[in-house]
Structures are given as structure tokens and as C-alpha cells.
Write a protein that binds this DNA or RNA. Structure first.
Lengths: 177, 177
DNA sequence: TCTAAATATTTTAAATGTCAAGTAAATTGA
DNA sequence: TCAATTTACTTGACATTTAAAATATTTAGA
């Protein structure tokens, strides 16, 4: 996964560390701007570290991948299956990608494609019994991994982090919407 | 990019929302556990949303990709170039990946590979003059994008978020180290 | 001095991801 | 009723990513 480790963030860090704390508005405005870059890089590094850890464990323990786990997770709570477009939306990836991941899971016998009764263009993807059982085992361990990885932040810290992320996400959504 | 949108997080959400608030220790412990999952999913969704936005803008504005931008960024602050292994460490990707990205940038004339004088196995990658100029233009816009995207969080919120992420990252590092 | 082990990078295969084009089907509106 | 437009999904090309293996070189130690 790429991370935009922009060097100007480092430059910002160096500028901040040697700032004479003069406090003039322009300096403070610049500091605030660079804070965004540093924050972004830290968030990216943190998310990637956790994600890489989870990917490696899924591969080692179950011989599967995170996108496949993700798709199974979406289907687990949809007893009647989901359409490809809906999977695309929930997984936040393009339709072509969902096609490929569903193909792989179908080949493994974990999901099945069912023609849509009302729209011959569409198909629904549904968990097989085996897929459901496997998913339940993976989900149990996955949950323990996440609990362990987030164990260094106490309850109030988690509340704060959740709130700040929600605030950030809302603003981002408005910026690009 | 996959996200481990585990359905047990949703189950946690539903359980939490209909909890009778009895407050017994087991219920509260379970709630705290599920909070980790929800937090992880929110963090993942938020990071991916920002990352996707930046990727799309880099492609639209400069016809380049985030990993290539990332590599250029690493080189911008290394006037003498960097070895492949060092790029791999800084970009947090495997060596094989760095080879491919460097190949692409070299083909575009943005970087050049130089044989290492002290180790014939090694080579150093260095920005060309054109690469440096292009990177500076991209970095300027990239910084503005990040500032805009993080504009919804005030200075104290950014400080808090940064601190919490640092705490989280430190714990994760210890968990997997 | 020489061999074994370690290191640096590349290559290969597989998986995931986007974008654009293609195909089939549904919807819209004249 | 029928043609144009839109929609659902697949396909193909390209880029990125990993893990493992291969190749070349350096280092360590007997």
C-alpha cells in the first residue's frame, strides 16, 4: 500500500522544532497547516501497520486474504445474499474488483452466485454453508486480534478517537461530495 | 483496498444500541471489546476515503499514482539518492514492489539508478532534475489537498488525534514486535 | 584462503485495485 | 410500439502489492 509520505511534512517537522516560538500569525498559520500533513502521515502509517498485521494473520491462519474476508463479512449479515453493485458499495471498491474476488470465493466453494429473479442482468452472491462456517471461525479470531491491537488505548481514549474520526470523516465527505 | 468490515462489529453495534444498560461487568467488558472493532472500521473507512481522494487527484492532475509520488517524496529529501532497501523501509513495502515502481519512474525520466560504488549488489535511486521539478509542483498541491481534507478538525482536535494515534501505534508495535 | 551464510536486488506468480470498454437487459419517452 | 438511454455486470489493460525463489555479491569464520 502506498503512503503519501510527502517530504514537506518532514520539512514542517524541522521548521516546527526550530521555531523560535515568535507566535506571529503567519508562522502559526503555517504550523497549523503542516500539522495536517503530519497528522495524515501518522494516521496512514498507523492504519497500514494494523492492516498489514491483520492481512498477515488471515493468510497464516486461514490461507485467505483481507478482501475475501471482507466480502464474506458483508454476506454474513445478508441471508438472502447481496447483488454485485451492493457489494461494490459496501466494500468501497469498483465492480470489476468485486467480480474477481467473488470468482475466487466461488471457486473455493465459499459463495454461490444466484440469478436475480427480477433482473436478468443482475446476480446475487450468497454464502454457502461451508462459507458461513469458515467465516464464523475467522471472525472470532479477527475480533480478538483487533481487541489486542487496540488494547493500548483505554475506554475514554477510544471514545475520543472515535469522535474525532467521525468528525474528520464528515468533513472529508463534505469536501469531496 | 480491502477493509475488514467484519459483521461482528455491526452485531456489536446492534447489541450496544439495544443494551438495557444493566452495567454488569461482563456486558461492559463485551461492549468495550466491540468498541475496538467499531473504532478500527471507522479508522479504516476514514483513511481509505482520504487516500482514495488523494489518489484520484494525483491521477487527474499529474497522471501519476500514489506509490510513485511516495517514492519521489522519499528521494526529494535525499540529494545523494537512496538505496533500494532504504526505499523499501521508508515506503513500508517489499523490495520487489520498489523495483517495479522505480522501473516505472525511470522509464518516465523522473529518477535514475546509479551503481553503488561500495557494493556491486546495490544501486542508488536518485531524482533527476525533471523529477525534482515535477515533485515540487505535486507536493505543493498535495499539501493543499491534505490541509483542505483535515480542515474540519480544529487545532486542539488535531493535537488530540495525533496523540491518540501515536499511543495506538506504539502499542501495536509492541503487540507485533 | 576458502566455504558457508547473509545480504541486495530482481524475477515470478498470484491477488487486488482502477478505469474504460463491451455485452445484455431494463427503462424512458416520443 | 420502438428506439434511445441507462443500468448491471464482466472483461481487458495496467498498476501495485506480497511472498518466494533466483542471482549476484559481500561478509564471517574456520
Amino acid at each position: 500500500m502506498a503512503r503519501d509520505n510527502c517530504s514537506s511534512a518532514d520539512a514542517a517537522g524541522r521548521a516546527l522544532s526550530r521555531s523560535d516560538d515568535s507566535g506571529d500569525l503567519e508562522t502559526r498559520a503555517t504550523e497549523a497547516h503542516h500539522e495536517s500533513l503530519r497528522l495524515w502521515l501518522r494516521m496512514l502509517a498507523c492504519t497500514n501497520l494494523i492492516e498489514t498485521t491483520i492481512r498477515q494473520r488471515l493468510q497464516a491462519r486461514f490461507g485467505t486474504t483481507l478482501p475475501r474476508f471482507d466480502l464474506l463479512s458483508q454476506l454474513e449479515r445478508a441471508p438472502n445474499g447481496l447483488k454485485m453493485g451492493e457489494l461494490s458499495r459496501r466494500m468501497m471498491v469498483t465492480g470489476g474488483n468485486v467480480t474477481g474476488i467473488a470468482d475466487a470465493l466461488e471457486a473455493e466453494g465459499l459463495v454461490t452466485r444466484i440469478a436475480d429473479l427480477t433482473d436478468r442482468r443482475a446476480s446475487r452472491v450468497k454464502l454457502t454453508a461451508g462459507g458461513r462456517r469458515l467465516f464464523q471461525r475467522m471472525a472470532g479470531e479477527h475480533e480478538q486480534w483487533v481487541i489486542e491491537l487496540f488494547g493500548g488505548v483505554d475506554a475514554s481514549g477510544k471514545q475520543q478517537l472515535g469522535g474525532l474520526l467521525a468528525q474528520l470523516k464528515q468533513h472529508v465527505g463534505r469536501s469531496i461530495g
